[in-house]
Amino acid sequence: MNVFRILGDLSHLLAMFLLLVKIWRSKSCAGISGKSQILFALVFTTRYLDLFSNFISIYNTVMKVVFLLCAYVTVYMIYWKFRKTFDIENDTFRLEFLLVPVIGLSFLVNYSYTPTEVLWTFSIYLESVAILPQLFMISKTGEAETITTHYLFFLGLYRALYLANWIWRYQTENFYDQISVVSGVVQTIFYCDFFYLYVTKVLKGKKLSLP
């Protein structure tokens, strides 16, 4: 466990908390893509199937449980508790455009043809594109609440910090994982445009709105 990894995990955790705080405080999930949140719940579910079969550390187990809980509570908030505030007309990204290639790729490029390994690979590929419905929604409405932009910033920062973690692990442990690294790079690239807007607008006190 290096500093990039722990900061990455904390950044991921903070992102999920920020989203729940936004929904809970405003009693509204306006501007949040329910589709992206369903994809993230699916990502954690398919990745953490080893939760009961493969013990790694207390830290690992606790974080997995917290991530799963946050993901499911968020979906519950959007589709049940505050569903009247859910902006369903703007959450129109076609999920099959993501799911079909991701399912295909996870069967084609994986480390072994076992159900858990294929599902783990699926979760890695899916995570790299799961934010697209959310980014699509923002580009469609042309704006995002400031707290939503903080959420996206920390969610992007998490994968960027994982890239630093992988470079560190390659140098110190000679450990690398091609599937995670390639997907992580793709995932981080999707946030670059947003990072630019975050730094040039939100950090200067302006609301994120697109021309």
Binding site: H12, N60, F67, S112, E117
Partner: peptide, 10 residues
């Protein structure tokens, strides 16, 4: 080397 038994990352 694939990582089957060492999925320590989240």
């Amino acid at each position: 080397e694939a990582r089957f038994d060492q999925k320590d990352e989240l």
